[in-house]
Amino acid sequence: MGLLPTPAAWQAALEARHGQALQAKFSAATVAICGLGGLGSHLALSLARAGVGKLILLDFDRVDLTNLHRQQYKASQIGQPKALALADNLREANPYLALEPHVVRLTEDNLAPLLAEATLVCEAFDQAEAKAMLVNAVLERFPEKFLVAASGMAGLGSANAITTRRVSRRFYLCGDGVSDVADGLGLVASRVAVCAGHQAHMVLRLLAEEYEP
């Protein structure tokens, strides 16, 4: 195994790609990712590679064989808590990333302290009820935080149908808004990754103070 680059070399490489001013904004940010499945695990990896300073990883579930076709886990990690397994994988991609993994099911009662430090919150749950709970709670309790959520990424429909739209001043929604995991084919790795890419890109745009109209 080769030697890791020094922290200074790592930072210089990021600044060479993004520019010093923009990278400073990424490095100063703390992003909470709620749900670490197909959406959340891809989203987290993109943000780690972009040099976002800290990720708060939140999921109660464990890695299962059925996850491996579309989520950023390895066969050797089956049975491990997703929050801890993903933290290990992210450290391989970015050894200087600050991580705060929590093996926890987010509820209305416990989310406030878990999300308090985050600059921005990402919703990446599978279940509609959990999505609605998180969105409503963040909008009500943390009106100063940006929220990037997802709705509609199932099936083999065109990837071009997945978009990002601004719902309100601090709330953005990615997906096609129509397809449902319970209909037809369900979740396909490539289309889920497209939606996760939309979420990750919107996070970086918001940190750069770039907003959708």
Rank of each mutant, 00 (worst) to 15 (best):
Y172H: 09
E129W: 12
L68K: 07
M202G: 07
E210C: 09
R62V: 00
L45T: 06
L115M: 04
A28K: 12
H102F: 14
V167S: 07
P81M: 00
G155L: 13
A12L: 09
L84R: 06
T6K: 14
E129V: 15
D109Y: 09
S46T: 11
D64Y: 07
R49K: 15
H198W: 14
L134K: 04
R169V: 11
N136M: 10
A200N: 11
T107Q: 04
A193Y: 03
M202N: 14
S179R: 06
G175M: 04
H42C: 00
A8T: 05
L115K: 02
C174F: 05
V203W: 14
E140W: 08
A132L: 15
L185S: 00
N110L: 09
A189I: 07
L57H: 01
E140Y: 11
R17H: 03
S168C: 12
G152S: 03
R70F: 06
L14F: 00
L68W: 12
I78E: 02
E210T: 06
F60Y: 11
S41P: 01
G19K: 02
A8L: 13
A196V: 14
E144T: 09
R141L: 13
R191Q: 08
T119A: 00
A154E: 09
L134V: 14
A154R: 07
L185E: 07
R205S: 13
L68F: 12
K82E: 01
L99V: 04
V138L: 11
F146R: 01
N110H: 09
E123I: 10
A93G: 06
L65A: 09
H201C: 10
D176Y: 15
Q72N: 11
G152I: 07
R49F: 08
A83D: 02
A159S: 14
L139K: 11
L58W: 02
P5W: 15
V167M: 12
A208C: 03
S46K: 06
L68E: 07
Y172W: 10
D180A: 14
V135R: 06
E209Q: 12
Q199H: 12
R141V: 12
L204N: 10
A28H: 08
I33R: 02
R191E: 07
G186I: 07
L84P: 00
E129S: 15
V203P: 06
G177T: 14
L187S: 06
A128M: 15
E123C: 03
D59K: 02
V52N: 03
A200E: 07
H69E: 10
T164P: 01
A118W: 10
V178L: 14
G155W: 06
K25V: 09
